[in-house]
Nucleic acid binder design. Structure first.
Lengths: 350, 350
DNA sequence: TTGTATGCGTTATCAC
DNA sequence: GTGATAACGCATACAA
């Protein structure tokens, strides 16, 4: 019974956790001083700062970010919506973004959309409820509802993994059409004659469609007829295998295939020896994504590498600049109105 | 100037977004009715409910979760700390957890620890600031600071990817020792003589050490001497290759290797043909994780599969039960005090 | 450098 | 079924 100030009948509404007041009382100062200790310790005198530091450590006080967020009308949370977390496609972007954000004291509220604009809208609505410092979305395809939500909210929005210069939201991305063009050009230059494109079997991956468009445009520019195959299999590796078999048993067998992503390409590449097809002699294979193991499989996979980590880092940098945390660097500003570029990584499969 | 109620000089403290009051005024009711519309619409009369629904849609009102969280002292956010987001190891657990959580109207605050207990503590402190409904951690290795934080907070903690029956926090996981034992037993049963274990080159992966312990114990129980190799290379694929070369050029070459994870195993498996080693004739290979492509590579990889998706789903289910959202199912309760089990997936590499 | 008063937008509580 | 009022825990604005 050393602490007689502790009331027996605790009001039901309190969360039960320590508050600034508890720390302030313990030290013998006002709450605001403790608040300042967390906001900007330099505004406190050296001795007071140390007394508060000791009390905070002793009591194990953790600031209530919810209350702080309400009082200041801004929070250090950033919302992010990506098609999926588990695949290799966005993994590096999520990780590099998360790391940058964490390093600046922000936290990441993550949701996945599975390439569905409805799920995305639902996620955006939920995330906006937390008044995030910023919202990061993937691609520029959104439902009208999502567009309305972000237009109404004061929250800055950054779109990644895409670049559409005419759009208002900040874009940190690259041109998917150009990615498709790069792959097609590479195979044409290598002298392949019958070059096909295999679409993603996942519905809603509109960016993959754009890569296909880029491929088709380049083919036409070179006087060739685009050949686009859409597999039925849902598993990407099975779909890749399905496409390989179908395209090689056609009337005029293809001698090169561009896949909408590396998982499809892996499916074809790894199935090839089992069905007696030699890569690249009989058929060249090009992927998209440069997923892990692309350089390890045999033959190693030629693929178009998107600036995955870079997009995460730049998106974070833009947000910090917007918040005034960091002065935007020249390089960051310069990149603002430009797409990042993809790179063809030439390996054994072509 | 049709809206004369809009004041020119907006007070600095407001966030500027629509509030419950705005909706209430628009409809001509009190705020609390609009609040009830979101909490439990059935408590409102049919006509009122519809009028509010219309106003919400018309105005584009998004509830302020921060204010709601403060008032109710609980939030529908769940914090999660995993070693890394981008690797294939935890991908399925994160995704299945995220999906389950989203389906129940919760949101996911995600942080990564990179197998560092200090980073984990930092993340936990930050996440606790949001008064999450629950906190999900990975493994049972935490800093004393983390232990103190979770002990003080009222927040329920669930540990995944591990199982230590004597611990207090809820455990949704499996025994890493047993995973190592399963791999060793499999190779012994197949008649392999000189079986080695290759450790993870990533520092701090204590669970991998436990798998190594399980392997070593099983070896001794069968009267064999454990051989443990720790690669120097940081890249897992390079480390796998390094281990393969070293273990096969030893005085007594091994004829089977258990790798701490599939990435290491892939490194060895895919390097083998390039250096003229036949798998499994000359050396069998077993991994851990059953990562994507394990069934596709040539030869396909024998591996120990952890219950990755299941852990995410069960962790979510436990949390909902704790919140009273769902009655816990019999199956869920029964699993509570038991480890989940790993499964050996036998393929061509052994 | 430190303190006092007030409000952030919602929900708990109690009243009608 | 609907409403008035008082918290929730912190940060802003202003004062000393």
């Amino acid at each position: 019974m050393s602490d007689s100030t502790k009331s027996e009948a605790r009001p039901r509404r309190t969360s039960g956790r320590l508050t600034l007041r508890d720390v302030a009382e313990h030290v013998g100062v006002s709450q605001i001083s403790v608040s300042r200790y967390f906001q900007d310790p330099t505004r406190l005198s050296e001795p007071l700062r140390e007394r508060i530091a000791r009390a905070v450590a002793e009591l194990g006080y953790v600031p209530n970010l919810v209350a702080g967020g309400l009082a200041s009308a801004r929070s250090r949370v950033i919302g992010m919506v990506i098609p999926n977390i588990s695949g290799p496609i966005f993994a590096n972007t999520i990780q590099s973004f998360s790391d940058a954000v964490t390093a600046h004291g922000y936290q990441l509220l993550l949701a996945s959309s599975y390439f569905s604009t409805d799920l995305e809208e639902h996620a955006v609505r939920g995330l906006l409820g937390w008044s995030p410092a910023a919202l990061v979305l993937t691609s520029h395809f959104h439902s009208p509802g999502t567009e309305a939500l972000i237009a109404q909210s004061q929250v800055p929005v950054i779109e990644t993994w895409d670049f559409q210069p005419q759009r208002k939201p900040l874009q940190i991305g690259f041109s998917h059409q150009e990615a498709g063009r790069i792959a097609a050009r590479h195979l044409i230059e290598r002298g392949y004659q019958h070059i096909a494109f295999v679409q993603n079997s996942v519905a809603g991956d509109t960016s993959a469609l754009e890569r296909g468009d880029g491929y088709a445009a380049t083919m036409r520019e070179h006087g060739r007829k685009p050949i686009v195959f859409s597999p039925k299999e849902v598993s990407p590796t099975h779909a890749g295998r399905e496409a390989l078999l179908a395209l090689l048993s056609a009337r005029i067998p293809v001698d090169a295939i561009v896949f909408a992503n590396d998982n499809l390409a892996f499916g074809a590449l790894l199935a090839a020896p089992r069905v007696g097809i030699r890569v690249p002699q009989q058929c060249a294979i090009v992927g998209f994504g440069d997923y892990p193991l692309a350089d390890m499989v045999m033959p190693s996979l030629t693929t178009v590498r998107p600036p995955a980590r870079e997009m995460g880092e730049l998106a974070a940098a833009r947000i910090f600049a917007l918040q005034g945390d960091d002065p935007p660097s020249i390089a960051t500003l310069r990149r603002r109105q430009r797409p990042l570029s993809c790179e063809i990584v030439v390996r054994e499969s072509s």
